[in-house]
């Protein structure tokens, strides 16, 4: 029984640097396994859509531009994603990954949460296709949603 059992702690702390992190002024290095923004390698995708089936948050869409030439565009909803990496595990062709550098994904508008991955010309192709079809949502930041 004693009074002030934490006296040692508090007197030491007075002469120590506080442990509080000064984010966003200082950023700690992120671990390699950190799950951030989804990445997509269009060259490896075969369009099997297992990732779409397994995604618990319906955050992935795979758009087929040309099935034979293996041209696919992935549309990723940053805001829906739960960052569980099930899609990365499910993908048998290593087309998906998660970045440990892009993790500050907060944004002030919904448009930023809607990202398209793929070859530039495929996204463009999809865009022209989409703009011709009324009632279909446009594709990500390249063409911000109008609603």
């Amino acid at each position: 029984m004693r009074i002030g059992a934490m006296l040692g702690d508090i007197s030491r702390s007075l002469f120590k640097r506080p442990v509080t992190e000064r984010y966003p002024f200082e950023r700690k290095a992120t671990p390699e396994r950190l799950r951030g923004q989804l990445t997509f390698d269009p060259a490896k995708c075969t369009g099997c859509k297992i990732c779409v089936r397994d995604c618990p948050a319906h955050g992935i869409e795979i758009m087929v531009v040309d099935k034979v030439a293996k041209r696919f565009v992935m549309r990723f909803h940053t805001d829906r994603c739960t960052y569980c990496a099930q899609c990365v595990v499910s993908c048998k062709f290593d087309a998906l990954g998660m970045s440990h550098e892009q993790w500050e994904l907060a944004a002030l508008s919904k448009e930023a949460f809607f990202v398209s991955f793929g070859r530039e010309e495929d996204i463009q192709a999809l865009l022209t296709q989409v703009t011709c079809t009324p009632g279909v949502a446009p594709v990500g930041p390249v063409a911000p949603a109008t609603t």
Binding site: P31, E32, R33, L34, R35, Y83, A85, M98
Partner: peptide, 12 residues
């Protein structure tokens, strides 16, 4: 846990 699993809370 973040270094091991990639997430701080829902480790998945």
């Amino acid at each position: 846990l973040e270094g091991l699993t990639g997430n701080r809370v829902n480790y998945s």
